[in-house]
Amino acid sequence: MKKYMLDLIIKENKQLSDQYSLLILTSPEKLPEILPGQFAEVRVDGSATTFLRRPISIHYVDYELNELWLLIQVVGDGTKKMAEIEEGKSLNMLIPLGNSFSTPSNIDSKVLLVGGGCGVAPLLYLGAHLKKIGFEVNFLLGARSKADLLQLCEYERLGNVFTTTEDGSYGEHGFVTQHSVLNSSNFDYIYTCGPTPMMKAVANYALKTSANCEVSLENTMACGIGACLCCVTDTIEGHVCVCTEGPVFNITKLKWEI
C-alpha cells in the first residue's frame, strides 16, 4: 500500500476526559485507503521534550464524511500536545503504516474483539469492517474504572459489548480475561489490543480454546516504515519490525511465554 505524508485538519477535538481526547481529522483531498489495524506516525509540534513522531492507532475511518479518528491517551508531553490541539489546526502524519487484522474466511466464525484501556482504539474500525462484511461482532472491553471505558456507545452501535473494570465501577469486576462471557461462549477468532500482560492473558485463553488469535503490538518506534529497525519483536522468523511486519501478529508467530 502506498504511504503518504499528509497534513490532516482537526475537524473536531472531543476531550473525553483529562486523559483522553478523540481527534476527528479531515482533509480537502480524499483520504487514502486505510485498513483496520494500521497506524499513523504523527509529528508533534511545540513540545520541547518530544523529538520523534508518535505511532497512533487508527481508531476509525469514515469515507463518506472523509474523516479519520484518532484516540489519544495523554502519556507524556507529546501526547498532551496532541490531545490539546485546537480545531482548525493540522497534524502532520505518515499514513497508512503497518499491516492489518485478517478477516476470517468463514462468515459464520464467532469473533471477539478484546481491548484494554486505550488499546480499544483499533478495534472500533476493525469491528465496523467485520460488521460490514456480515459478521456478528462481540467486543470485550476492559479498563481501570468507568471513566477509562472509552467510546462505549460507538462500540454498542456495532455489536455486543461486554465490559469489565478493575474497580468494579462498571460492567463485571476484574480483568477482561475474568469476564463470564469467556466461559459461556466459544470464539473462533479473537483480536486483541491493550497492555502486554492483558494480551498475553488473552492469547493464553485463545490457545486453550483453540481460537485463532491476533494481537496488535505497541513497541516504541522511530521511523515507522522499516528503516531504523528499532521496534523489533522476537518471532519464529527472528527479529522483525513491528512497524512493517506488524503491528498485528498471529500469536503462533510470536515467541511469547504464555
Partner: peptide, 17 residues
C-alpha cells in the same frame, strides 16, 4: 539478528539506538 528489544530511547533533541 541484532540486539534484543528495547533498542531505542528518545532523549532530549535526539535518540539512543
Amino acid at each position: 539478528q541484532g540486539n534484543p528489544y528495547p533498542r531505542m530511547a528518545e532523549t532530549p533533541s535526539g535518540m539512543l539506538n
